[in-house]
Design a protein around this nucleic acid. Structure first.
Length: 184
DNA sequence: CCCTGATTCGC
DNA sequence: GCGAATCAGG
């Protein structure tokens, strides 16, 4: 598929409207990929989108000069590894190691205020018995903060999260995914 | 994992 | 000029 004037015009329009490259690619027919869209956008020099007064510094410019495509041939060589170093010495444990047995936790909070606050925030309410404080967080607990840190009922989600993941399933989506993924 | 745009470079 | 592969980040 070639870039006709109409397609380019539509591309410009949608790009300026803030649609993502993949969405624009879906909008244009003819099996256009989002890479094609982005490439065209760059060629048209309109990657700025909606930046009124801002000069974005080009800080990240990687050029590893590595082979980009397998090209032709029948070599069957796997692939040139760009970075192969594997560190085995960096082991970090952030276990908070709570003192066993002697948990001197004095949880006194104001229930009335709590109700008010949670009703105000009203996003996600964790039952009191599931709540975790900062010190109780481990690698496997969701670290999504709930509430205002200024308030005494501030706590963390604390539910299960896979190791290496900072949040549980629910909050991970919240954190990374946009609020709503438009799909058609 | 999902996604985003940015960049490179063979075609 | 085009866009797949790749990168870097959320």
């Amino acid at each position: 598929m070639t870039w006709t004037d109409e397609r380019v015009a539509l591309l410009k329009k949608l790009w300026m409207e803030g649609l993502s490259a993949s969405q624009i690619a879906a909008e244009l027919s003819g099996g256009v990929t989002r890479n094609a869209v982005i490439g065209k956008v760059h060629r048209l020099k309109l990657s700025a989108r909606a930046k009124p007064t801002n000069v974005a510094p080009r800080a990240k410019a990687p050029r590893p000069s590595a082979p980009r495509r397998p090209s032709s041939g029948g070599g069957g060589i796997s692939r040139t590894a760009t970075t192969s170093a594997t560190n085995a010495s960096s082991q970090r444990r952030t276990t908070a190691a709570p003192t066993l047995g002697a948990t001197a936790l004095k949880m006194d909070m104001a229930p009335e205020m709590e109700l008010e606050v949670s009703a105000k925030t009203a996003d996600l309410i964790i039952p009191v018995e599931e709540r975790v404080s900062l010190l109780q967080l481990t690698e496997k607990t969701c670290k999504w903060p709930i509430g205002d840190p200024m308030n005494p009922d501030f706590h963390f989600c604390g539910r299960h999260s896979d190791e290496g993941k900072p949040y549980c399933e629910f909050h991970s989506r919240r954190a990374y995914h946009q609020i709503e993924r438009k799909k058609r």
